[in-house]
Amino acid sequence: MSPSTVVAAVDGSAESQAAARWAAREALLRGLPLHVVHVREEWTTGFAHAPFTGADTALGDAAATRHGAERVPRDAADRLREDHPGLRVGVEQVSGRPVEVLLAAAKKAEVLVLGSRGLGAVGGFLAGSVSMPVVAHAERPVVVVRAGERGEDGKRRAGGPTGPAPHLDVVLGLDLAGPCDELIEYAFSAAAARGAALRVVHGWDAPVVSGYDPEAGDPGHAVAWGLREAGALGDALRPWRGRFPDVGVKEQCVVGRAADHLVDASKDASLMVLGRRVRRAAIGTHIGPVTHAVLHRAAAPVAVVPHP
Rank of each mutant, 00 (worst) to 15 (best):
C180I: 03
L126K: 01
A109W: 06
P141F: 01
F125C: 07
S131D: 06
C180T: 13
V113M: 07
E110I: 00
P219R: 10
G148A: 13
V113Y: 06
A127Y: 07
L172E: 07
F188L: 05
L112V: 02
A222Q: 09
L172S: 09
A106V: 06
S189F: 07
A216W: 15
D181Q: 14
V201H: 04
P98F: 03
P214Y: 00
V209H: 00
D218I: 01
A158Y: 08
V135S: 10
C180L: 04
A121I: 14
R117N: 00
F125I: 15
V134H: 02
A177E: 14
A197E: 05
P166K: 04
G159H: 09
V144H: 07
G211L: 12
A106N: 08
V113L: 02
G195F: 06
D181A: 05
A136C: 10
V144N: 12
R157P: 02
G159C: 06
A190Y: 09
G163F: 04
P161T: 13
S129L: 03
L119Q: 09
S210V: 11
Y186P: 00
G178W: 00
A177N: 14
V201W: 04
V145N: 04
A196S: 15
G203T: 12
E100D: 14
Y186N: 03
G220P: 04
V111H: 12
G118S: 07
Y212C: 01
A192E: 12
Y212V: 12
L126N: 01
S189N: 11
H221W: 15
V101T: 14
